[in-house]
Design a protein around this nucleic acid. Structure first.
Length: 599
RNA sequence: CGGAACGUGGCGCAGUCUGGUAGCGCACUUGACUGGGGGUCAAGGGGUCGGAGGUUCAAAUCCUCUCGUUCCGACCA
């Protein structure tokens, strides 16, 4: 009864087997009602379709169908990683503290790192990522330039003690991740490894049948100089992307460069003559918001300089942006070179400046100040006066105040232009499913992972690291592909490719036909589920739709009357009548064609 | 971490204000009918109301503590 399919790749054959493929015997429990705890669509559907069950906050059991989808993603990832020359290994999930102390992250990583002690009071953590362990392997096993480059990967369960786990598989505390680490002799060689992974990732997500973009990204806490994120485009994405309509440029808004436009002076000055005016203090009682101040003083928000107080690693910093702009906190973090930036609370602002928020300004402010590049082009601007109920007009940067640092600090908008080609930009939402980093020598230097070059000299290995959220890919696929009836799996990720509905199990001929079709499809190497339950047709249709099987074959009335079975595609609902004799081969061909088209 | 809400059979909920020892829908079991988009009827099984303590003749219901879950915030001066 069991069946197998084989994947031939790089001389390695993986066999994946399903024990049972009869609906009546499988653990598939579907629900009509939406579980109260599920907010986003993928979470709702994964629960309703019987793919996952929650054990506790952020921790899920993958039921047979859910696991089958996970295995599909894993198989594609393995195949493409191996094709790209990476080697699979498997590291422990539990990691000793001393490795993390060596890299410095035992202190730096923060509360997301779940730490605990064993019976001897030795410190450990659950691995949220594996740079330390892999670097330890590298320094023990790799000693010569002749052994490099090497790319090692694993598919492992990670644990991150998220502040707020949510959205089911999208942000769990425990999740399945493919992580790969490359080791090279030079920066240039590491760039080559990076490019190889970038290509592999593109192939992986193409083969998954997902609509995605690779975008320039902030490298975040993992560190490193350069990185790309792979984003599945979906309305519910947690990230915002900016995509150029003209060229290939695409970036996370955390990273997207704002280019200064040469705007006519009249737009940023309250005087079309462009003459620099004197700085004057004016009363603005109760005017805290930019819009109110601008309206009151009969200027536009573009002529106001907004002063925001942030805490950068606990140190207060005043941040200046134009009145209609927003601070991009990741850019701020990078400019200040700190680990954390946080907007100061109102009472913190009061303690620091003895001012209510709304009247703070850059002129003679006693705290460290940085400004967005755009601010420095303004003249005769309006700012807070650092006095309750007052603002200043005629403020000009450079003359009236000088920031300690100036840079690109604001969030990009769709009115901005592409930093590469000046083309129009579009903003869209995305779900991060993959992230690749050039790490450089951060870890290898900290942990002394070195090799000997041709001259016998010790050199730090140049590293890269590359992650894919396997379980998140499944959630993202559903976010991107569903309708009111349920999941619509892209064929490569579907837990099974075909579902055969036997609509009258009491009719021996119908049943025999459905059975034969089931067996023929299996024999042809197709993954097929036979719905042999004693249920009414309506329930079978609803369940087939809900669990998202791409192809559905119905053996029922049409078979009894006309000797034909019905083939229906889940995505567009098109139905074709097939003679029984052709059915298995037609379906097989169709599936193979569709899969090949993605390769 | 801050704010809010919720915890009642497997799931979704009512009952809580106005204490009197538990109810509905789905799911499940049995039977009959039915059989192309989650059917109908009938008969059943299953909960002591998150936990602990308290008030009371009496607590799902009131009080205290606690645990858990979910949502919101963690952004615009």
């Amino acid at each position: 009864m069991g069946r197998f399919f084989f994947l031939q790749l790089n001389n390695i054959t993986f066999r994946y087997s399903y024990s049972i493929m009869r609906y009546s015997q499988m653990l598939i429990r579907t629900a009509k009602e939406i579980p109260a705890e599920a907010e986003v669509i993928s979470h709702q559907l994964l629960l309703r379709a019987g793919f996952i069950r929650k054990l506790t906050s952020g921790l899920y059991t993958y039921l047979p169908l859910g696991l089958a989808a996970i295995r599909k993603v894993e198989a594609i990832v393995r195949e493409e990683m191996n094709r790209a020359g990476a080697q699979e290994l498997l590291m422990p999930m539990v990691q000793p503290a001393d490795l993390w102390q060596e890299s410095g992250r035992w202190v730096k990583y923060g509360p997301e790192l779940l730490r605990f002690q064993d019976r001897h009071n030795r410190e450990y953590c659950l691995g949220p990522t594996h740079e330390e362990v892999i670097t330890d392997i590298a320094r023990r096993e790799l000693h010569s330039y002749r052994q490099l480059p090497v790319n090692l990967y694993q598919i492992q369960t990670k644990f991150r003690d998220e502040i707020r786990p949510r959205f089911g598989l999208m942000r769990g505390r425990e999740f399945i991740m493919k992580d790969a680490y490359s080791f090279d002799v030079s920066d240039e060689a590491a760039g080559q490894s990076y490019q190889t992974m970038r290509d592999a990732y593109t192939r992986i997500f193409q083969r998954c049948g997902l609509e995605f973009r690779a975008v320039e990204a902030d490298s975040g806490s993992i560190g490193g100089s350069f990185s790309h994120e792979f984003m599945v485009l979906a309305d519910t994405g947690e990230d915002t992307l900016v995509i150029c309509q003209e060229c290939e440029y695409a970036a996370n808004v955390e990273k997207a460069k704002v280019v200064l436009l040469a705007e006519p002076a009249s737009e940023t000055t309250d005087d079309s003559t462009g003459e620099v005016q004197d700085c004057i203090k004016v009363e603005t009682p109760g005017m805290k918001k930019v819009d109110r101040v601008a309206e009151f003083l009969k200027v536009t928000p573009q002529q106001v300089i907004k002063t925001m107080i942030y805490l950068a690693d606990e140190e207060p910093v005043a941040v200046l942006v134009r009145g209609d702009r927003e601070v991009q906190s990741v850019k701020l973090k990078n400019l200040l070179d700190v680990a954390e930036v946080e907007l100061a609370e109102d009472d913190t602002v009061w303690k620091l400046t003895k001012l209510p928020v709304g009247y703070i300004g850059p002129v003679n402010i006693p705290i460290k100040m940085v400004a967005d590049q755009e601010v420095m082009t303004m003249i005769n601007a309006v700012t807070g006066a650092n006095e309750k109920g007052h603002h200043l007009t005629g403020v000009t940067p450079g003359r009236d105040f000088t920031p300690v640092a100036v840079g690109d600090l604001r969030q990009i908008t769709k009115e901005d232009r592409c930093p590469v080609c000046q083309g129009a930009l579009e903003l869209t939402e995305g779900i991060e499913v993959g992230h690749i980093f050039k790490l450089g020598t951060n870890y290898s230097e900290a942990m002394h992972a070195v090799y000997q070059d041709q001259e016998g000299k010790e050199q730090a290995m140049v590293m890269g690291c590359y992650g894919i959220g396997i379980s998140r890919v499944v959630a993202a696929a559903i976010e991107q592909n569903h309708d009111e009836n349920g999941i619509i799996f892209p064929l490569p990720l579907a837990p099974v490719q075909v579902i055969v509905l036997n609509l009258s199990i009491k009719n021996e001929e119908t049943t025999a036909t459905a059975e034969k079709l089931y067996q023929d499809l299996q024999a042809a190497g197709i993954e097929v589920l036979l719905d042999d339950r004693d249920e009414r047709p309506g329930s079978k249709f609803k369940d087939a739709d809900l669990i998202g099987i791409p192809y559905r074959v119905t053996v029922g009335k049409t078979w009894e009357k006309e000797g034909k079975v019905e083939l229906r595609t889940r995505r567009d609902g098109t139905t074709t009548l097939l003679d029984y004799e052709q059915a298995a081969s037609t379906i097989t061909t169709s599936i193979q064609d569709e899969l090949n088209a993605l390769k």
